[in-house]
Design a protein around this nucleic acid. Structure first.
Lengths: 315, 315
DNA sequence: GTTTGATCTGTTACCGCTATCAAAATAAAA
DNA sequence: TTTTATTTTGATAGCGGTAACAGATCAAAC
């Protein structure tokens, strides 16, 4: 195994200089830097993460809490993980996945938390290492999220553009900020165009949406657009419409939200508000690492603007 | 931070004794063990993973390679991850997720690899640390998998039990062992009951299955059972049947395979061969850790028997 | 009561890296 | 040129564990 000392010897400098080239390059002359880089490359030097962690009194570990039940877990967590993992690896950090069933012990340098419900904020506030949330909140915690409001605004406007007359929002029956933001987006656009909004809230399962749409079918005369708070709901709505022999997209438009996995499985394929979840994952990792560097300084929020992917459920 | 020394002082023993209590308890008298445990508890001692790793020349890191494209990635990888993470954490290991886009550098103590295709085995063979595969293979690598053959056998038999006359296997158009095993399971049962088997292979997308079933609809008279190699395919088959006004499950039976996520999204809900992917994840982790302990000794294979979950697509 | 052997516990020396401070080299001011 | 300030580099001492060996303890055998 190639160590710092090996590189140091080869470059005719001290260990410390090599260490500095890696961690504080601004403190080293360009001349020496060059020598050291050359030696590192020639020896194919790989720093020993454990040694670094020990010396700096760090763990080089970030914990990811996924607080939702894994059975209901959205497939997009996989993309989130990919993004986080990619960024952490670049910076020589490891990941530890924490779910309901292993609320645990070992130390870490920071946390990324997602799937929070209101009651979680209390213990989150007591965590002693930097925390970044994936998902908006109103408690002042730093977070990354998609721009929920803008996303649904886009969807609603798109429905209007495509000339659907009656536009209905199918929301998730949950008192969480992301849902409020989405509804707000819908309401704002409806207000702008002076149409009466209509919101139906159901639990986030395709069957719930399907059922409620079926039951209230007579209220949806044709030319109706359904803006849905998730692709799951959109999938359920789509099925309900199809079963009622409603024509998609001619008579009924459907727009989902998320654009990860489910939208492609649907038939016709869902028009959806797509989020780049992987990129958001990277952003979570970057933010928590920056926060660690800055000894816990607040990082604020970062919203990612989603894109509307037009497919087969809108005309 | 509480260290070994703190515990040692409190228990009036040396650091080494404490270390032994943790790593080689059989070498310590019960008397001392009790003292040490008490001290550990009272001080709430948490071992420093980095220090341990450094001293033992280990990384305490396991890398998980997911070789499939993340866009097509099955949601069940999330369950796999959960299982792996849970087990690793118990043993003070961290996880590093490696995908197409960060084929990387840093060291590790072992690998778990999944989503391999034939051409991958070459470089896998060159890895210098213990490897465990998730997914059967014929190259002698240690692996964990679901019992593909038995699963499809169960499905096929179940179709027969439910008195579907013509039973068709919808397979994945891929030259991989798991597919062969599934087909073998189907073929064996068909042979036993002296029925002519019929296999249709398509790429693993719901739309592919839907299309091919639609196109060949006249070949499926009613009283037909479709045994599918994945829930995705089953979903497509289900849609095709519904579109042709076929009655599910009265006239047409459908059984999927995997039982993670998609089966619940379908409507009617899919009868499926369910795997406990989380448990298999745990098994992967256990196996690779054992292999590390045993300096790379072969561990063989371990097949998990899946269960048939009867729902709404079989009568 | 020694001696011997086995079992248990403690001492020492690292593992590879970084913070801290001291020393050397360089630049600026006197 | 000498003095002083500044920048750059090096020596040292851990970080918290573990392996390897040395020393102590204890029981059985002489």
């Amino acid at each position: 195994m190639v160590t710092l000392s090996d590189v140091a010897k080869k470059a005719n400098v001290s260990k410390m200089t090599v260490s500095r080239v890696i961690n504080h390059p601004e403190q080293v002359t360009d001349e020496l830097k060059l020598l050291v880089f050359k030696a590192m490359k020639e020896l194919n030097y790989r720093p020993n993460v454990a040694a670094k962690a020990l010396a700096r009194n760090r763990t080089q570990i970030i914990k990811l809490f996924i607080l939702e039940e894994m059975s209901t877990v959205e497939p997009y967590y996989m993309s989130l993980l990919t993004g986080i993992a990619r960024e952490l690896e670049k910076r020589q950090y490891s990941l530890q996945l924490v779910t309901q069933h292993n609320f645990d012990i070992g130390g870490c340098d920071g946390y990324i938390i997602t799937g929070m419900r209101d009651q979680d904020y209390e213990w989150i506030g007591r965590l002693e290492k930097p925390v970044v949330l994936f998902g908006e909140n109103h408690y002042g915690y730093d977070f990354i999220d998609t721009d929920n409001q803008k996303g649904i605004k886009m969807a609603t406007k798109y429905m209007l553009d495509r000339d659907y007359q009656q536009i209905i929002f199918i929301g998730i029956d949950l008192n969480e900020p992301f849902e409020y933001s989405r509804e707000a987006g819908y309401l704002q656009v409806m207000q702008q165009v002076q149409k009466t909004p209509q919101i139906i809230r159901v639990s986030n399962h395709s069957h719930s949406a399907e059922k409620i749409i079926g039951k209230n079918w007579r209220k949806f005369p044709g030319n109706t657009g359904f803006v849905c708070a998730s692709d799951r709901l959109a999938l359920g709505v789509e099925r309900a419409v199809m079963k009622q022999q409603g024509k998609v997209p001619e008579e009924y438009g459907i727009i989902g939200h998320d654009g990860v996995f489910l939208d492609q499985v649907a038939d016709p394929r869902l028009t959806t508000i797509r989020q780049d979840v992987t990129k958001m994952g990277e952003a979570c990792a970057k933010m928590v690492l920056r926060k660690i560097e800055q000894v816990g300084a607040p990082q604020g929020e970062r919203l990612f603007v989603p894109t509307l992917v037009a497919r087969e459920t809108t005309r």
